[in-house]
Design a protein around this nucleic acid. Sequence first.
DNA 1: TTGAAAGCGATACCAT
DNA 2: ATGGTATCGCTTTCAA
Lengths: 340, 340
Amino acid sequence: MSQLPEQPTMTSVPTSADVARLAGVSRATVSYVLNNNATVRISEQTRRRVREAASDLGYVPHAAARSLRAGHSRMVLLPTWHIPAGPLHQRFFHALQSDLRRLDYTVVQYGSGGLDADEAARAWAELRPVAVVSPGGPALTPYGIDVLTRSGAKAVITLGPQPVDGAHALVMDQRVVGSCAVAHLLARGRRRIGVVLPQEPGLALFGEPRLVGARRTAEAAGAHVQPLPLRYEEESAAQLASRWRTLGLDAVFAYNDEYAMLLMRALQDAGIPVPGETAVIGADDLMLGRLLRPRLSSVRMELAAGQAPAELIDRLVRHPGGTPERHDLLRATAVPRESS
Amino acid sequence: MSQLPEQPTMTSVPTSADVARLAGVSRATVSYVLNNNATVRISEQTRRRVREAASDLGYVPHAAARSLRAGHSRMVLLPTWHIPAGPLHQRFFHALQSDLRRLDYTVVQYGSGGLDADEAARAWAELRPVAVVSPGGPALTPYGIDVLTRSGAKAVITLGPQPVDGAHALVMDQRVVGSCAVAHLLARGRRRIGVVLPQEPGLALFGEPRLVGARRTAEAAGAHVQPLPLRYEEESAAQLASRWRTLGLDAVFAYNDEYAMLLMRALQDAGIPVPGETAVIGADDLMLGRLLRPRLSSVRMELAAGQAPAELIDRLVRHPGGTPERHDLLRATAVPRESS
DNA sequence: TTGAAAGCGATACCAT
DNA sequence: ATGGTATCGCTTTCAA
């Protein structure tokens, strides 16, 4: 396997006892040295001997044993469900990870696909995380929250479009996206607004709330919203475009930029002028939207920077038991270009 | 926190001893019952009492304690480095996760950003995984492989563009992408071929090997390849387009479809006919490429299905110590459309 | 300055 | 059919 020369048939995994033996000290001393325990004075010579022994053996402490002894871990569990993560989410996860690492937490992503909400909660609880940040997928149930809390989790936090009762919530309220898009279209004088609903399974989670936000804003202004199911295929877009004029719409919020590009192309191919007859706006502000003609208007989404989520988690872990907090993360701004 | 009524001030986390006490049996019996241990007969009545006690207390076994006792875990560690994952990788991870779960492994993604290769290897070893599947980022070193192996990992597997000495390898050799793109352009009669190199930090990892593959295939045919650094911004593309004719190229492989779209738009805006004067081909076969005019040619990438990676890992775990195996996962095929 | 030993939670052997 | 108990690797109190 590994081709390093010095490896005297070490069959089993080295433990701190092996290190102690090799260094000629007790296991306690090994622990003191390797953890730089300040409450105890150890001679420099002993320290060196211990460290050398450890590195000779390739000793690495056993995290499970350690946290078993300690009675707690610093693991923050981040379950995943394979809802395909966009760049926004990826950036968020990455920032959360490095921020939490800086606060000395260990972040572990745990793939939970195929489990139902309560099975998943139990599986998570087995790992005894100090905090759980649960994104979308099957929503956490009160039972799940209970299991996690009883298993010692100091903070149970949901992450997603809506909060869940009894847990803290990092809310990325997708309604603001639809709301923002429609507000922009209304400002442009459009009144009969289509809203694309992607038919791909995972995306309903975002599509629905965006529609709700769009509808709410439209109705507040006495305008009308029409849901438009669409699959992410040229054929589906062509069909929609072919019956476009029967719909009598003067604008469309196309869920995101990719669907917007798909639909806009289909509309153009069907001879519908954009934005002349129908305005189009997407979301995500992809670079690619600027390459089309007309350039695609979009809704740019950002995650609020104010209270860094990592610090929130840290605070909740240190002072558990408060009433559930809600933090809104998502900001949306319209980026008008030529298509609307 | 949780609002469930029945919670009689349970301050500490319930253990199997608590379950035993409540059920009026020994901890051994609890273990037998909850693990459905077949080597021992337990009366149906006792079983029920134990199960009820467990569920009353919200008992969930402690994974760390269990694997400490067992001396091994079934955790497959999948380190991540926040190299933004494309859909191809996401699909791969997801498939790997569910396949491994089916084989009764626990898959854990561990964010390792900010650590260097050897620190990371030690951090992974602390978790005592039974297998590690290490994607790109800082490449695993011989020392890292050694630490992991000594810590009890039965299989150390790299995942990425190149294999690493001493470990098994799931290879996604990006050279075949460049090779495939250039082969297609050569077949179309092009001879002076530009190859876009994205300047974004993370992407060099893929860009370089694609260039190498492109160059190899071109030179084998006596054709020439010219590297073209490009940032993913309109301005950068416009600059490149403005000096295009001085380059004397009749084709370009643009790294991927996004860069291809960016560049193609810039070329068109600069009055360079595509594909008349310069052919363009991307990679990833994004839906969006079909919406441009001319429709964008692309290289479609697929992961070989043959030997499912999960089964490979399972085999390596059960029969450790063989010589390092290499498995090529990436297949590339040209998808000719109008731009080339 | 160092060592002996208890104990974290779960499991499996050996008794009963 | 069930219970007592040693054990996994590590940390930490208490003694020496």
